[in-house]
Design a protein around this nucleic acid. Sequence first.
DNA 1: TACTGACATGTCAGAAAGTACATGTCTAAT
DNA 2: ATTAGACATGTACTTTCTGACATGTCAGTA
Lengths: 176, 176
Amino acid sequence: MSLRFALLGLLSDQSMSGYDLTKRFEQSMGNVWPARHSQIYPELNKLNNEGLIEIVAEGPRGRKEYQATDAGRAAVHHWLTKIPTEWSIRSEPLLRSFFLWMLSPEEARTYLRDYRTWFQQRLDGYNEIKQYWTPETEGEKASRVVLEAGVYQAEAAIAWANWALEQYGDPRDSDA
Amino acid sequence: MSLRFALLGLLSDQSMSGYDLTKRFEQSMGNVWPARHSQIYPELNKLNNEGLIEIVAEGPRGRKEYQATDAGRAAVHHWLTKIPTEWSIRSEPLLRSFFLWMLSPEEARTYLRDYRTWFQQRLDGYNEIKQYWTPETEGEKASRVVLEAGVYQAEAAIAWANWALEQYGDPRDSDA
DNA sequence: TACTGACATGTCAGAAAGTACATGTCTAAT
DNA sequence: ATTAGACATGTACTTTCTGACATGTCAGTA
């Protein structure tokens, strides 16, 4: 159900095409909920058939811009306030960490350094965005708040990776 | 593919039944990669047919204890070192946060307080485990390292929630 | 002895998600 | 004039995941 409400929520803030939404998922949204265009387009058509979104403009190359209807916005509100949150998350990077004991110490350290590097790059990216982006719509202001969650998380991930590297006998902090 | 290697990895450390594995997912593993018994049992049978795990003991009520074979352990090693990590994570709690602007300030704060409470309980649980659990096998020692990741993450989540509550005009820090 | 709750394993249908295939348009640069 | 790359939307197949259904055993207790 989450994808459906993600789309509905984005289209409650501003009108967008499937293509725009796909890009949005590739950038920000995909960091917490990945989705490809092959999932997005069919879902948009379903949402449209159910009257939760509507086409507000058409453009070149068959471009269709959608916007949430009142019913759509109400559906998001219902989801947010009445449907219990699925708190558990899915993280392959941490799943893999359970099995670092099966690697040689050097292999384990390589993994942890990659882990740290990946989150460091995330963090750099986030800080870049923070510097040059001024949120305008209400939706963007909320996104800005979530961006900060990404910063907190990335910092925690890096701190953990450094701690874990010590556990796995890192000779010296190289790649930080 | 992840579930397959999660099972294989767990069965590389110690022999377990599907029931044991299910409980393991409900507790620790499920925090980073959820799975139900309806997914676990068929996967175990597949793994068994492929010779990646084998039955090492049988018990009451049809209980079957599995253990990874050498081929199984090799498969995990290959996965860890040769298959690129899927770095992006999936988090419904953060997805929902993108749409807090659609709620009234009070509703948004309620959500953020629930968010904080949930992670605080996680954190308490983790600290409890840290105090009373002594890892024995290599797999458990690695799990202990991942547990620490949970601590870092939960602390970051709580810190963020507090910051976000200020953004959403929290009159006073109540529930911390 | 009857019952409850934990133990234990499975299947099945449908939903969600991922990968690959497929097609076509518009713009800017060469 | 051609061509490359971004724009734009879709389908089809397969795998993964969830939720519900289904069955049965064993240990402890009332």
